[in-house]
Amino acid sequence: MPGTSTPTGTRATRMLGVVTLAFTVWLVVFGLVVSAEDVVQGSTVRMMYVHVPSIWVAYVAFALTAVVSAVYLSGKNRSLAWDRVAGASAEIGVLFVAISLITGSLWGRLTWGTYWVWDARLTSTAFLFITYIGYLAVRGLGGSFRQRARRSAVLALLAVLEIPLVHFSVVIWRSLHQESTVANSGTDVELDGLMLFTLFLGIVTFTMLFAWMVLHRQRALALQDAVDSHGLDLAIKQRQQEAEVR
């Protein structure tokens, strides 16, 4: 109806939003006040509570994009809802990779003395960022919704193949970055208990934020598709009326 707005939220998303907000406040307090400074890095280490959860969310987002793309391509009933979830997830993934690259650069400047080093993980992440910008560009190519869905679903699956290949080749090209310290039990670096808790709190908070954003964004995309489709219907109707007048 003209003049009314269609909300993208439901009771469940509003509840999720409130819980996410509460967790965000908890994370800010723990990240900036409660958790201790690092012996070597001082307060700089607090960048970790944004940097690591951001890249975690980006990986989750791109994995979700790939999974729902595969579901779309394999399903007999190819619902466009899968395509919209893939698109929403990729958009948010790109946003979080950007946050991760920016916070990583700032952290690198403070700890390594440089914004960028050509090591395997940073370079692969930059490629990841560019690849999904390309994916979003393909989604904006135009054509029918079905064309968009098929093209982008295939591209999302190609990206799943491309990313490990790029990563592998860059790893053997050069590697200076420290190994993952939390996930890799082979290293002797230990995080303080409260720091570790704050890090996991960050991961949980960012994951909830991602879920909330995807739910809203895919509904916004559905509304956008409905508007585009409505515009097309109107145009067809106008042409039909023109033909009748003649």
């Binding site: 135009g142 491309e162 592998f168 860059v170």
Partner: peptide, 22 residues
Amino acid sequence: LAAGARGRETLLPLLLLPVVAP
């Protein structure tokens, strides 16, 4: 993929160059 798309001249490098890095 880029064939027939509007703005394919600018899209192709964006899609292709990251993949050919290896």
